[in-house]
Amino acid sequence: MIEMLSYDFMQRAFLAGIIIAILASVSGTFIVLRRYSMMSETLAHSALVGVAVGLVGGYNPLWMAVIVAILSAWLIEYLRSSFSLYSDAVLAIMLSGTLAVAVIVVSLGGALNNSLFSYLFGSILSVSKEDIITISIFGSISLGLLLIYAKELYFVAYDEEVAKTSGLKVVFLNYLLVSIAAVIIALSIRVVGSLLIGALMVIPTASALQYRVGFAKTIFISLIIALLSVVFGMGLSFFFSLPSGATIVLSVLVLFVLSLVVNKQ
């Protein structure tokens, strides 16, 4: 463990991993309760379009991912609320559509190589100092907004109509939540990868729900599970030379199964 942390890149990796674990699990609780789990997958793929544009156009891929993810989140929310289409169909359409656009942009730009691959599966070991600063700034803003509006978002997740009749600005709150999720997902794909971030948002909360405790405790348990998974996953990744995104997700899955077993009634 100490040997592992003696490397600069491992210190950065751990720092990034821990920040992402906090962001993904706390926002994930709201996302899961709001029944937006599939949306996190879709936004993760939309963010790849930003990455692609960034890689090809020479912009910062992380920033571009944040911008594209927010725009996609708004589009999804708009389609979902305005056209009462089957909302999971909207998500499926956006997921494949944006992935297709990302791949085409990258191959037209001649950059279909390792760099996109690292955004698909995450490459925590190549996290730069600059990445950590970007993740910290956007992450704190998102987390701050989430905590400021926590009670309102919780009420809307519980019952949107009753929240609306109580006078809450439900439309604003819905857009706020998907925007926060978009930012956090876009920040996370560098670390966990867009194919795997959905898992880190959804599985810790799904595990925490097995304990059947109140709201605050559910967030806390999901946070602990996410942190443990990131630490275990990165350890596994370091010692067995495996891709970190996959080992993190595998760790969180193990904790999910454990939560199921422990709470079996």
Partner: peptide
């Protein structure tokens, strides 16, 4: 399975009135 205690739910009644 919604994670809410009775207190969590009843407290929602105050949310619309609270200040950020």
């Amino acid at each position: 399975s919604f994670p809410a205690s009775v207190l969590d739910i009843v407290s929602m009644g105050r949310v619309a009135k609270r200040k950020l």
